[in-house]
Design a protein around this nucleic acid. Structure first.
Lengths: 413, 413
DNA sequence: TTACTTCGTGAAGTTTCTTGGGTAAGTTGC
DNA sequence: GCAACTTACCCAAGAAACTTCACGAAGTAA
């Protein structure tokens, strides 16, 4: 029997208020009452409780509007912390963040490479302890660990389903083992979904749009979709497979089995391959062509392009154009009005990609007729996935709109 | 200030219970308690209230399981009714349905043609009154009118934005004027979204999947997306523009401004045009080539294909293949596990389309790796949009998960 | 008939909000 | 400088929607 969690009662209200304070940064009780529709009395009681719990603190007063000044409230950002890690073959990134989503610590370590998951899990636990020691966070304030992984996965089960980071990881009970090794609640989700949530969570003043898509480029290309502040997962937590959206059904075959996938044209590996085919360019940029060095080779090409090199610029523009084609489709299907570019793939040449993609979207007839679509570059960059994974745990803690509460079944099988 | 309605309190619980009874068909209090997580006492009280209001009736008893038999509950289907209309240039379809989503009356009338909206609205009011007289529904039980329209629109504002049914309708305050003319609450949404909701609402035993997409083919091709029982609208209530998803960026130009759109290959107009180019076939099927007769010409071709005519079959298969390409993309982006085909375009040859599309989906690598995607043909066919539009009003009445309740702001502007 | 199970509901308590009535802390006008 | 007004915040009592506990009604099994 499938169950839908319908929140109700105090936990929901409390977390809504907390979320509102977090998003606003500083806010008064009166504003909370206006925004929430609750009475000032109710807000007063709820806020008192959160202050007692140490989640909220009073920080000064607002301007008087003809009477008593409003007491301003803020989230006590150090009341809770979360850890996040982006699982990656090349390089792992561990972050710790506070309740505001602000990164308070970061370390990076060797990627999974071809190691077995059974060997990597204890290493991760050690590295996470090192991060905690480094940041001097009170361990009791840590609410959990979020894990961002590339490739298809089963988020509820906490299991990877694809060939990432390497085939040995498939069906390994990752979440369970990590929870055992760290003693923390662990949640697993795709890097793109995590990055999307990271963008959303750390953007002050809340959602600018009810629907938000974040294109995440690392080795592959994925897309995280946020609807009403929550990750849209689809039927099996694998929505937003932008990288394997087919641009040309008669195009070159992809490892995924389809043809003409976005990744074949726009992923770092594809751009590097195209650059290597240009002997002169490959020599000029000192490209290695070593598969594990793809990311740094790609960075060289992008930097060369931003510095005005024609050959590099052509390659990057072409990749951006192809990616843009996929994004146009995505925007059409989901009726998006904002798209974020995030992840290590956009770290150096994000502006270049954004410009090309924005041009394509502006040419879109729908865009002209109904509303525009804006392309923005991530403000949290390379750490987006890890930070988003951590934010996912914080969201559970502070905004448990989908966790706490009464359960009502929406469908029987 | 944008506000998100967060339901809470009794209205939500009540409507959840009502929805559960509706979906189950017949259900006992004990089962409701188990499914909802509420106590039997609470269910008892809520059910008593709904019985008093005439929304629920007791209908016999279940088998004893060793003690007192369970009293079975059903929705009193005639307690509420809703009207729905699918706006169309060629032919308008009006339906009335009861609380179970069962159609209890249907009339069709001349389409909007090139008439001005100011002239059509009073005619619609007259035709709706005729439908009410015909069905002998108690007018006080009618909760509202749902309007399904092709093309881009602004659902909250109740205004059409595109060139459908004809350019004069653009920006006409349709919802407002219809509400005035009929004295009913009116809601406007895309035909595809309505059809999707119709499929969902009238399918007993509730959702088989949390995400459900319905491809709707009339003159154009659209797609309605249902997430957790509610229509997914995107940023501007125009999500699911499958018809203008580009299959080939270098393809033929489309009236929408883009190139290689699905509609150019798969819409009835495209199939008829291809058939007209084949002189022999056009003569054999007695095709007119008259734009306003496109739908019947298309039907002839599809029927000829299902009867085994090679030339027709090739044309229809090609259209289905192209549509399938778009659906594959859609399925990838949204991570769907079920797709419904609905609308007049699939009335005759739905099975043929379904077969070709299913084949394509089965070849999809993702489908093999993670989960299968099933294609099913609508069981409510040509009336899907109108019926879904009506269901939209019923959903508001019986399942006001998004309407009644406390308001909490999720974002400030 | 007796013992047991199961369904449905009444009575009383809990939680979460509301309404109504203060009190403290400001500003404004004379 | 003081009265009059505004505004913010909070206490007390009450309403609504649940809960737990208890019990009678309706059924089965030996």
């Amino acid at each position: 029997m499938s169950r839908v969690v319908v929140p109700s009662g105090g936990a929901l209200t409390r977390s809504m208020i907390l979320d509102r304070i977090r998003v606003a940064g500083r806010i008064s009780r009166v504003e909370l009452a206006e925004a929430s529709g609750l009475t000032q009395t109710a807000i007063s009681n709820i806020v008192r409780q959160t202050i007692t719990d140490g989640l909220v603190i009073e920080t000064g007063f607002g301007e008087s509007t003809g009477g008593k000044r409003r007491t301003l409230l803020e989230i006590n950002v150090s009341a809770r912390h979360a850890l996040g890690v982006s699982l990656d073959q090349e390089r792992m990134i561990y972050v710790a963040c506070d309740l505001s989503g602000q990164m308070v610590g970061r370390i990076s370590a060797a990627g999974t490479g071809l190691e077995q998951p059974g060997a990597v899990v204890p290493r991760m636990a050690t590295e996470l302890r090192a991060l905690l020691d480094l940041t001097e966070i009170d361990p009791s304030s840590v609410v959990g660990l979020g894990v961002a992984s590339p490739g298809p996965l089963n988020s509820p089960a906490g299991v990877l389903l694809g060939r990432q980071p390497n085939p040995a990881w498939r069906d390994f009970p990752l979440r369970e083992e990590l929870a055992k090794a760290t003693g923390l609640p662990v949640m697993l989700d795709s890097d793109a979904s995590c990055a999307a949530l990271g963008e959303f969570w750390t953007t002050r003043n809340g959602a600018t749009s009810p629907v938000n898509a974040t294109v995440y480029m690392a080795d592959g290309i994925g897309c995280g979709i946020i609807v009403d502040g929550r990750v849209f997962h689809g039927a099996s937590s694998n929505a937003g497979e932008l990288g394997h959206l087919s641009l040309d059904v008669d195009g070159p075959p992809c490892a995924c089995g389809a043809r003409g996938c976005v990744e074949l044209y726009a992923a770092p590996r594809a751009v590097v391959a195209a650059a290597l085919a240009d002997r002169e360019l490959a020599t000029a940029l000192d490209l290695r062509g070593d598969p594990v060095r793809t990311r740094s080779d790609f960075a060289r090409i992008v930097r060369s392009a931003t510095h005005g090199d024609d050959a590099s610029l052509r390659l990057v523009t072409e990749a951006a154009r192809r990616l843009g084609q996929g994004i146009v489709t995505l925007g059409n299907v989901l009726d998006l009005d904002e798209i974020s570019l995030s992840g290590p793939g956009f770290a150096d040449g994000g502006a270049l990609f954004a410009q090309v993609i924005q041009q394509q979207l502006d040419q879109l007839p729908f865009t002209r007729d109904v509303h525009s679509v804006a392309v923005r570059i991530s403000h949290i960059g390379t750490e987006a996935a890890a930070l988003g994974a951590a934010a996912r745990m914080l969201q559970q803690e502070v905004t448990p709109h989908t966790r706490v509460g009464r359960r009502l079944t929406s469908a029987a099988r």
